[in-house]
Design a protein around this nucleic acid. Structure first.
Lengths: 145, 145
DNA sequence: TACAAATACTATTGATTTGGTAGTAATTGG
DNA sequence: CCAATTACTACCAAATCAATAGTATTTGTA
């Protein structure tokens, strides 16, 4: 069971945006360089983050991206859910009508519980927690330029 | 984020074996019928469960499968881990040497935490919990024959 | 001992998802 | 006007998923 690179890269992207939140819009190129991720790929990953209103973009010269709100107001659940989809581990959790066995199946509630637990765990942490950790390390990517 | 059908079918398979644990070996054909899953596919899924010593098989006429130990002694973590792989959500959790950024990356510990939480959640439940739920429902698959 | 019924093993396959790349269009500050 | 940036569309190779097919092996029993 692995997290997709979309979610992994996207989270790193958000951490970088969090580190520079007070400095205004950041070029994707810089983040790509610092995080050693393809800029083209990051530009794909950031689309859903924009759509979810976690990130705001500015086009044209001196454009860039900035968090739509302070890192402390963005939970990791917000981010992962946007990039990885919801935490309904099986289809029948959200759409019970897609399975004829829901009334007799005891596994459904397990998947429901597990998904809820994952969501809770991620909802209890904010982007700011990661940003602070990064700053505490003193050697996080953005500062090593 | 979805659980694979391997894990979903495999768990249902294990619940059925749990329901009949006291009755000796069960034919895969019967479980396939009751759970409405392809017998051929189930025969693939049960291989890792056997390898993990969660299930014991008997070949030949009047063969079948039976749980290797009582349902109360099999956690759901045992089952899901066997079918879905470990709970290391990113490669670097288990193999830090595969990423040059582990020393500066703050996302690694998050993935580690989340994986651990999932494992804990599943480790706190046993197959017997699901078997009991099924029996309580009075209408679980094995009883509806 | 032959046979039927079951598991064990090996290979294949179509569909989907993943993890990107490439190229062009649109926007905008200077 | 131009350079720099985001936005959009299309494409693609590789891996994974969800099976299916067929054959081999084992074994209780008639």
């Amino acid at each position: 069971m692995r997290m997709s690179t979309r979610a992994r890269y996207g989270l790193r992207l958000m951490v970088e945006l969090g580190l520079r939140y007070s400095e205004g819009p950041v070029f994707l190129r810089e983040i790509a360089k610092v995080e050693e991720i393809s800029e083209k790929y990051l530009s794909q990953i950031i689309i859903p983050l924009k759509a979810a209103r976690l990130v705001t973009s500015f086009r044209g010269a001196h454009g860039g991206y900035i968090l739509a709100r302070p890192p402390a107001q963005i939970t990791l659940k917000d981010i992962i859910e946007t990039l990885e989809g919801d935490f309904d581990l099986v289809e029948c959790v959200k759409n019970p009508e897609t399975c004829t066995r829901v009334s007799i199946c005891v596994t459904r509630s397990l998947w429901q519980d597990l998904g809820k637990k994952m969501a809770e765990t991620l909802d209890s942490k904010t982007l700011d927690d990661l940003v602070r950790q990064c700053k505490d390390k003193q050697n996080c990517a953005m500062y090593s330029i």
